[in-house]
Nucleic acid binder design. Structure first.
Length: 809
RNA sequence: GGGCAGGUGGCGGAAUAGGCAUACGCACAGGACUUAAAAUCCUGAGAUCCAUUUGGGAUCGUAAGGGUUCAAAUCCCUUUCUGCCCACCA
């Protein structure tokens, strides 16, 4: 018996696959394609177990679909721009390009040692100008369409990273990269008009039946569509009309104050009428002093004295407050406050002694202690009393619209995508500023605008601003001296369209060939972490729609199916470098083999769930692989033949049901853990059968099937055993086995007999037995018959091929 | 606070459409092989109690409580706990 030496076997097959270009994919326009995509990694240094899990899952599917006769695209690349490279440059005095390249080489080597079946000829690296040139090209296209624009805005600023952040990169007031509190700054920045597509992104999410509901819910919540009424409130003394946005016009009789944001331009407009103007300005400036967005005070605010708002529905005069909880950049920056039926309004009213008027009846619960935010029957609402909330909402809305006091509007939570970064390591924004001609895009034939290599790195200014030869340029229109934009693009742009570039990665003339893209796209299966539910996946969906409107692609959604894999933990805690609880894939592969690692990662939990790393579990998987290996050497050893015909039937039948279950897993459920368990059972059964039978033919047939079924999970050992069995062809394209549950006729089944809810025994009956016959079997079974002695049978239920239930008295 | 997911042995986790709960694996115990250990192979095992010469038997059991049903981990109601995401979005 030869020893199982994973190091030799795995290396051998990895070299064979590469040498024979086994996984190189080309367009075959008349063949069914399968595009399997995993989220491209940031080249941070080395692979972690999360990567291993992600890419192993993808590999299982890619390998299965190849065996299923589909033309598979399974590419890999590098999300290579970004801050860590620059931070490493500052800390270790190494250029980001060199640092990144070094990491890519290391991680690529690791991926190969895992035996992932990528088509490396399609490798994409986003920091290469061959790639980011097309970022710039897209930017110019969007600029021309008005989708990319520049404006001054209050932006989130991270002092530590020395750059702006998009809203969604600020988590609980902290920078998503360095976890420091951010602050606000007013700056001129580049934005992309994702809001133009907000409605479509929500609409089309309904088509994403292959996505987890959770992700769709998260995205829709993040985009945050809300339909409501913009209502005009006239003011006393002034001609100024204050607009507010509400989704609850049915509560308008309960309005007891108006609240506006401190940035609201009402203050300037009616300054002369405001009695406590100085006090208000004082309040605001004090507020600004302490303004980082790390905390909010839900009841802070100040009343504007000397002017009131008039409720358009009943003419009541109500006070106006500046309230910290009202946001300037949502809706109109002002609200009608209904403390009886809104928690925030209620808290504010309590704090400032504002009356609370109940207008929606809530079954016997008092609003003295808690606002009621649900629907109900209207009270204190004049002629609308007695209507339900929804009836009143329609009627009041109509009245306000008819009297020109209101109009229907739709608001979104999502803001335009802030893409400028004041950093070096990113795609330069291809814009030139000329004193004479103004702001101009770089002409397309001059692309790419290459990121210069010579930059001084320091914590203060790691930007292109320090590079004079980059900045100074001639105006493309008038040829006078001009300057380049020095901001670079958010790296989420790189990953918003990379999946399309894989379809034609070496194209130098255009972003990609449309025949190729339209053959491969959309991605059949996308796999990655749930942490990208909102940012990356929304940007990618948005970008794809822009590409569609540029007539580059024909469909509207890039990813048909999405699998979000769970985290890998150690003792229930996330593995991270800072916690020092990481497990290195390299060491594991060396000691136990890539096949064992892959098998454990797939077996320990269903892919969507959290996976806790245990070395004992890994060792168990290695033990199984060795059992499979040893089986090769005992399969031809003749045993004394004690196996019955029935046992042969059973093992063949088990083989077919295993094929069925594993196939189902691969096609739809992705519960690889149970598929592997099923194969383990078959191996266990084969051990037992082999020890009893000299029927080598059957054993060999089952063994061969096991190897094929296991191939997507543990490809190296399967290739090796396949070769040892005498097959010359590569297993990668060997046809996946079909199953036939009727291939062996089983005439008898074991049927459990339940009496008064308890299983009292099992009988073996002909599969087509009638109820009468079954009764006879039961009576002739001594054990079961005892329970029926001297009892009356009240009910006799036979669920075909499943169970018999008898109720007795 | 809102939304989603979930609670099954010592542990990770199984269980088509309501039909034998705990598959598979880990850890554990016993045995075989061995000078010994490792490795390997075989066997056992939800809990409690009873009976043990062999064979076994009873009760309880899928977070807790209730309901529907011949039959519930699965369906319905109430309670509770955990995880994740979102959170001044009017």
């Amino acid at each position: 018996m030869k020893n199982y030496d994973h190091n030799i076997i795995e290396k051998k097959w990895q070299i064979t696959w590469t040498k024979n270009k086994v996984f190189t994919s080309i367009e075959k326009y008349n063949e069914k394609k399968y595009y399997c995509l995993v989220m491209l990694p940031y080249p941070s240094g080395t692979l972690h177990m999360g990567h291993v899990r992600n890419y192993t899952i993808g590999d299982v599917l890619a390998r299965f679909h190849r065996m299923n006769g589909e033309n598979v695209l399974h590419p890999m690349g590098w999300d290579a721009f970004g801050l860590p490279a620059e931070n490493a440059a500052i800390a270790n005095d190494i250029h980001p390009a060199i640092w990144t390249k070094k990491n890519i080489i290391c991680m690529k080597h690791q991926l190969k040692s895992l035996g992932i079946s990528y088509d490396w000829e399609r490798e994409v690296t986003t920091c290469n100008y061959e790639y980011y040139k097309w970022n710039q090209w897209f930017f110019i296209k969007m600029f021309e369409k008005g989708l990319a624009f520049r404006k001054t805005a209050k932006v989130n600023w991270c002092k530590t990273c020395n750059t702006v952040l998009a809203n969604e990169q600020v988590i609980n007031g902290k920078c998503w990269r360095c976890s420091q509190y951010t602050e606000y700054k007013n700056l001129k920045q580049w934005f992309i008009k994702i809001t133009n597509y907000a409605d479509e992104l929500i609409q089309d999410s309904q088509q994403l039946s292959g996505w987890p509901n959770q992700v769709i819910a998260m995205q829709n919540n993040w985009i945050g569509k809300s339909i409501g009424l913009e209502i005009n409130f006239k003011l006393t003394l002034s001609q100024y009309t204050l607009k507010i946005f509400t989704t609850r016009p049915d509560t308008i009789y309960g309005v007891t104050f108006i609240a506006i944001s401190q940035e609201h331009n009402l203050l300037k407009e009616v300054e002369c009428y405001i009695k406590n103007y100085d006090e208000i300005m004082n309040y605001i400036s004090k507020n600004k002093m302490q303004q980082t967005n790390n905390e909010y005070k839900d009841t802070a605010g100040i009343m504007i004295e000397g002017i009131k708002a008039i409720n358009p529905i009943n003419g009541n005069e109500i006070p106006i407050f500046i309230a910290d909880y009202v946001l300037i950049d949502y809706g109109t920056g002002g609200i009608m406050a209904v403390p009886a039926h809104d928690k925030r309004d209620w808290n504010f009213a309590k704090q400032h002694n504002i009356p609370i008027i109940e207008v929606i009846k809530n079954n016997n619960k008092s609003i003295l202690y808690k606002p009621y935010e649900g629907d109900g029957i209207l009270i204190n609402s004049d002629r609308f009393n007695g209507l339900t909330s929804s009836q009143a909402l329609a009627k009041i809305s109509k009245l306000l619209k008819d009297t020109a006091c209101g109009k229907q509007v739709i608001n979104f939570k999502i803001r335009d995508w802030l893409i400028s970064r004041q950093r070096y390591w990113g795609t330069p924004i291809p814009i030139i500023y000329c004193n004479i001609c103004g702001m101009l895009p770089v002409p397309v034939h001059e692309l790419p605008v290459i990121l210069p290599k010579d930059i001084k790195f320091s914590t203060k200014t790691s930007t292109l601003k320090t590079n004079k030869s980059f900045i100074n340029v001639k105006c493309p229109k008038c040829q006078q001296n001009a300057t380049r934009e020095t901001d670079t693009m958010d790296t989420f742009i790189d990953s918003a369209w990379y999946y399309a570039r894989y379809c034609d990665p070496k194209n130098m003339k255009s972003v990609f060939n449309s025949d190729k893209v339209n053959y491969w796209m959309p991605v059949n299966q996308y796999i990655g972490g749930i942490e990208h539910a909102c940012m990356h996946l929304v940007y990618a969906r948005f970008w794809y729609k822009v590409m569609r409107d540029l007539e580059l692609v024909k469909t509207s959604e890039p990813f048909s199916n999405l699998l979000t894999q769970g985290m890998v933990t150690l003792n229930g805690k996330v593995m991270s470098k800072s916690k020092g609880n990481t497990v290195s894939p390299d060491k594991i592969i060396k000691q136990y083999g890539a096949d064992s690692l892959r098998l454990f990662i797939l077996f320990a939990a269903p892919p969507q769930k959290q996976l806790d790393w245990t070395i004992e579990g890994l060792q168990g998987c290695r033990r199984f692989i060795k059992r499979l290996w040893n089986l090769f050497y005992i399969i031809n050893v003749k045993a004394k033949s004690t196996a019955t015909v029935n046992e042969k039937v059973k093992i063949v039948q088990l083989m077919h049901t295993t094929i069925k279950k594993v196939t189902y897993t691969m096609q739809s459920s992705f519960k690889f853990n149970t598929a592997i368990a099923n194969i383990m059972e078959l191996v266990n059964s084969l051990y037992v059968y082999q020890s009893k039978s000299n029927d080598c033919k059957t054993s060999l047939e089952v063994y061969k099937t096991i190897i094929i079924l296991l191939y997507p999970f543990t490809p190296h050992i399967c290739e090796e055993l396949w070769e040892m069995l005498g097959y010359k062809t590569n297993l990668s394209y060997y046809t996946w086995p079909s199953y036939n549950c009727n291939v062996v006729k089983n005439d008898f089944i074991d049927l459990p007999i339940q009496i008064n809810g308890k299983v009292r025994g099992t009988i073996c009956i002909p599969i087509e037995a009638s109820q009468e016959l079954i009764k006879q079997y039961i009576i002739s079974n001594n054990k079961i018959a005892t329970y029926l002695k001297n009892k009356t049978i009240i009910k006799f239920i036979y669920v075909k091929k499943r169970i018999v239930t008898i109720v007795i008295k």
